[in-house]
């Protein structure tokens, strides 16, 4: 659970208006196993990035727990957290911003080792080269002395991935890892992540792109206004969605074949303001199948009647 205070402004604080909070993430639960990729899918403002950041404790959740290999992270001090941070690495959306333009590739990839005081100079050199090879930048000699501006977008993102791999983590959190990249290089970066997953890494991927999630993730969790509204095996979610929000979201993904005219089920309006979350089911004001009960009942995640997988859950009283 993560809440952000909403600035009241000087007038608001003088008038002692009550402090408002944005409930960015509200009671979200999920697991990521070894060798598994979970895609957290949703529109902007749904809380997917906040969720990812709480996992790494880059933001402090107000309630709830995060366990890594069974160990609770939420009440660890920063110092106690540090060795665990090595095991969990983050990949950001924009490789044009996440890399320091003044650092050569070698320094960028070596930095996490220096921060964590790992290895001698020669060992670090070897680890950097290994990480570059793992990230598909071969031969590493060709890349180590380059600056970010000498690399293409795809290569930059691979450098960022190499920097996150150099500490040999067990969990990667990738926030929209390909959305800034050109279509022609996206699949290469996604296949790289898929390969790492097959080697045993757990990957939490944040994305707004359902097609990408459908192809590369094992499981998909769909978020709406700070909650997971549906979760299950990726194939099941895209082929047999049960929550009306997931159905609508899937229906508006444009199809590349012009003969397959999409029949988009366009929801009116936009996601409500997270300071005013609707009572009952938070999706009911935009839901095409809402009934009066939906205004009262805040539905829990449970297995929907139409599901074909025991791991498939949806938060809808009508599913």
């Amino acid at each position: 659970m993560t809440r952000y205070p909403v600035p009241r402004g000087i007038v608001g604080s003088l008038a002692r208006r009550p402090k408002q909070h944005v409930h960015a993430v509200d009671g979200v639960s999920f697991t990521v196993a070894e060798g598994e990729m979970l895609a957290l899918v949703g529109e902007s403002g749904c809380g997917k990035t906040t969720t990812a950041q709480s996992v790494l404790r880059l933001v402090e959740p107000d309630a709830g727990t995060v366990r890594f290999r069974g160990r609770e992270l939420t009440d660890l001090s920063n110092r106690a957290l540090r060795p665990l941070r090595r095991q969990m690495q983050m990949i950001y959306q924009d490789p044009y911003e996440s890399l320091d333009p003044r650092f050569r590739v070698r320094s960028t990839v070596e930095e996490p080792l220096l921060v964590h005081g790992v290895g001698s100079r020669a060992e670090r050199r070897r680890l950097v080269e290994e990480a570059l090879v793992r990230a598909g930048l071969t031969p590493p000699e060709l890349y180590v002395d380059r600056f970010p501006h000498e690399l293409s977008g795809g290569q930059r993102q691979r450098v960022a991935i190499a920097a996150s791999l150099v500490l040999d983590p067990e969990l990667l959190v990738a926030d929209e890892p390909v959305s800034m990249l050109d279509v022609s290089v996206r699949a290469g970066v996604l296949r790289l992540l898929d390969g790492l997953r097959q080697e045993g890494l757990g990957i939490l991927m944040i994305t707004h792109d359902l097609s990408t999630a459908a192809h590369f993730a094992n499981r998909i969790a769909v978020m709406y206004l700070g909650r997971i509204v549906e979760e299950g095996p990726a194939r099941e979610i895209v082929r047999n969605p049960q929550h009306p929000y997931t159905k609508a979201l899937l229906s508006v993904v444009p199809k590349p074949d012009p003969r397959e005219r999409s029949r988009p089920q366009i929801l009116q309006g936009e996601t409500p303001d997270p300071t005013h979350i609707p009572v009952g089911c938070r999706f009911h004001p935009r839901c095409p199948i809402a009934i009066p009960e939906c205004k009262q009942v805040d539905p829990e995640l449970r297995r929907p009647a139409g599901s074909r997988s025991p791991e498939h859950v949806a938060a809808c009283i009508r599913a």
């Binding site: 293409s152 795809g154 290569q155 279509v183 022609s184 290089v185 996206r186 699949a187 290469g188 996604l190 296949r191 792109d209 359902l210 097609s211 990408t212 459908a214 192809h215 895209v238 082929r239 899937l250 993904v253 199809k255 590349p256 074949d257």
Partner: peptide, 21 residues
């Protein structure tokens, strides 16, 4: 290749990437 690099929601095939820049 551009179409092959574009993931289709219900597609089963591999998604291509185009090497180089």
């Amino acid at each position: 290749l551009l179409f092959a690099a574009t993931p289709d929601l219900l597609g089963e095939g591999d998604i291509a990437s185009i090497p180089g820049s």
